[in-house]
Amino acid sequence: MDTLHSVLFYAFAALTVGGGLVTSLLGGRARALGVAAVGVGLAGLYADLDAGYAALVILVALGACAVLLLGLAGPRFAAADLEPAGLARQLGAALAGVVFLALAYVAFRGRYAGGTASIGAVNAAAVGRLLLGREALGVEALAAALLVAVAAGGLIARGRPR
């Protein structure tokens, strides 16, 4: 990619990361504005990748998400927003950091960096072959983790007072 694409990438990546941080750390209307900033940043990144139609769709979709979240930022929902998080939720939030480290490790050290991860056409058949063939072990591990998460979510929901 040339210099103009690089400058555009860094500008929109900064907007996306900033919007993600605002959404993660702030509450109320700022959270909805953070989602809108992520939408603009992602649309710019998609356009930088020559995906103009997808950029338009993500801009409209995340803009609509921001409007919906703005509707949930009123005083009626403020009390629920300030409820303290339990130990399980704090552990889950900490695990998000582990997820980021794992994904960043895969991005930098995985086969994508060397350009050897090409699966040819990105369509349903190719993705199916990839997930059930070469990456079957990872998919099984993810499926097991998802099953445990769903079971734990069900147990937590059963224990909630009505």
Partner: peptide, 13 residues
């Protein structure tokens, strides 16, 4: 990866 982890953080927190 950052966005995915930030989304998981928000959903869990």
């Amino acid at each position: 990866a950052f966005l995915f982890a930030a989304g998981a953080f928000v959903a869990a927190r």
